[in-house]
């Protein structure tokens, strides 16, 4: 029997339908700002993603946020992007994260600096997300740095990746999951799913490639808070497929009813995603609507969490 590396790993191994959510970013040096956000999610989700300068805006370090969460008894998933650090800094933070109690990581390329508030910054992209997955895996399993130099203590964490089943080239996306699995990924969190046809095709193709026995796939679900929010998602966040019906339904509601409508849309998506075979959990995301996440988890009948 595999020894679980984290609580999330334990639940996935036990065959539970897991729920993860993204922590709202904090722009405060007060540790309480992070723990207060985590408090909103405690008990509703199994693990919480600490984003890494999401949307290419500077925020509190995910290493610090994840450490604060771990200390507070909320299981963190630390995100690593390849935009801001080269392979030395990434390996240093992988070790440091493990030392500070982080037991789940997710590796990704990262939004480009051009979509953020520091578009003049120099982006690194020394290595890509597939390289980072392999590096995390060899550090963990072989106890060496990429250079081959020995670690004196190997980190232990569950290694995750992301994929976007909704952006071109659609046919290649499942193959890219295969590359990430080959590199070292053990679970996948997908980009925001509104388009269920694409999600079903993606899962079917991953099944044909034999990947569903090798990797757990969690579907990304967005909880809209306003018509403005979904338009922002469609126009400003690259790679998100927001169908017209989502925007129409949000716009059809008065502003004070839009939050409730957003929860209803998310619940419908969750219900349909759970019907897709081998989707092993959901990953909830919102913009300024964090109190909606417990509502969605409860409304979907996923409470209490194991």
């Amino acid at each position: 029997m595999t020894e679980p590396r984290s609580r999330l790993h334990e639940l996935l191994l036990a065959g539970e339908f897991v729920v993860t959510a993204e922590l709202q970013t904090s722009d405060s040096a007060d540790p309480g700002s992070v723990t207060r956000l985590a408090e909103l999610l405690r008990g509703s989700v199994d693990a919480v993603n600490c984003t890494d300068n999401s949307a290419a805006h500077a925020h509190i370090s995910p290493l610090a946020a994840a450490h604060l969460l771990a200390d507070d008894g909320v299981e963190p998933i630390m995100q690593f992007v390849c935009r801001d650090r080269n392979r030395l800094a990434l390996q240093a933070d992988l070790l440091g994260a493990a030392a500070l109690g982080v037991r789940n990581i997710v590796c990704m390329t990262g939004d480009d600096v051009s979509v953020g508030d520091h578009p003049e910054a120099k982006p690194l992209y020394d290595i890509d997300s597939v390289h980072l997955l392999r590096i995390a895996r060899i550090m963990r399993d072989e106890g060496v740095y990429l250079s081959g130099r020995q670690l004196t203590g190997a980190p232990s964490f569950l290694i995750g990746a992301v994929e976007n089943p909704f952006a071109p080239p659609l046919e290649f996306r499942p193959m890219r999951v295969g590359m990430k699995v080959e590199a070292g990924a053990e679970f996948i969190q997908t980009q925001i799913c509104f388009n269920l046809d694409k999600m079903r095709l993606f899962m079917a193709r991953c099944g044909e490639l034999g990947l569903l026995d090798l990797v757990w796939i969690l579907a990304g679900v967005f909880v809209p808070s306003s018509a403005r929010g979904v338009r922002y998602l469609r126009d400003q966040v690259p790679g998100v497929d927001v169908p017209g019906w989502v925007i129409e339904r949000m716009e059809a509601r008065a502003p004070e009813d839009q939050r409730a409508e957003g929860v209803r849309i998310a619940l419908e998506i969750v219900e349909q995603v759970r019907d897709i075979p081998d989707v092993r959990g959901i990953h909830l995301m919102t913009i300024n609507h964090e109190d909606a996440i417990p509502q969605v988890v409860e409304g979907a009948g996923l409470l209490p969490r194991p």
């Binding site: 994929e163 952006a167 690259p238």
Partner: peptide, 16 residues
């Protein structure tokens, strides 16, 4: 622009 060597990032726009 991201010097990726293992496939596209998640940011590819809907029109490719």
């Amino acid at each position: 622009p991201k010097n990726l060597r293992n496939g596209p990032c998640g940011g590819t726009l809907q029109d490719g």
